[in-house]
Design a binder for these strands. Sequence first.
DNA 1: CCGTATCCATTTAGATACTG
DNA 2: CAGTATCTAAATGGATACGG
Lengths: 116, 116
Amino acid sequence: MVKICNYGFDESFVEEHRDMHGIAYTQNVLSGRYKNLILWYLKENDRRFGEIKKFLTSVSQGSLTKQLRELESDEIITRTVYPEVPPKVVYGLSKKGKDLMPIIDMMEEFGKKHGR
Amino acid sequence: MVKICNYGFDESFVEEHRDMHGIAYTQNVLSGRYKNLILWYLKENDRRFGEIKKFLTSVSQGSLTKQLRELESDEIITRTVYPEVPPKVVYGLSKKGKDLMPIIDMMEEFGKKHGR
DNA sequence: CCGTATCCATTTAGATACTG
DNA sequence: CAGTATCTAAATGGATACGG
């Protein structure tokens, strides 16, 4: 399938499904092993790369970088580099990312209610 | 990583992150290329296998079956077989699945607002 | 400290053929 | 009609080594 729009559905599919365009987009933004957890963690505070890595005990550095880059390019999170030695990089929610928080909250609620 | 609880995080991780147990569970339930779209489609009406397949123009039969089986085993959807010839199988939202609808709605809304 | 690059393992999905 | 079985392709994530 040829991808357009960075969210995994081809042109004709999107054309035929204008109605559900939105849900496909959001699914793509959130698709990724750790993205929900990262956003949940950023909800309370901005965090440094190392903090996030430590929080997600089992993620590899490469995978974490990839997920953060995707969230950044989707403009869900911001990335601020402090030109120090050693370097310091802080991640935080963008305005768009904050718009996502009600969804994160409801996912948390649903899981709390129905998860084992 | 050893999987427990069918949602991709190992025992020690879950133990250390009781707080966010819920979000990990929900992410797992919704993870899958077409699950959001299927749920969105079932929101209005119960649907037959063939209808869903036709709606998701690009999904293969095997993939669709897999996604439906997962949603069924997570008790998000119900599957009703009518013993006719030719067979008729109808999928619908369970009570738990209906609990998911506010999340689906908000995802749709977010995407409508922010997606290109 | 916070990455990138490379390679490899696992997971997930599509294509095709066949069946009650 | 609504599957199952098998094979293959693609996407995703982990491990390791190295760099500014």
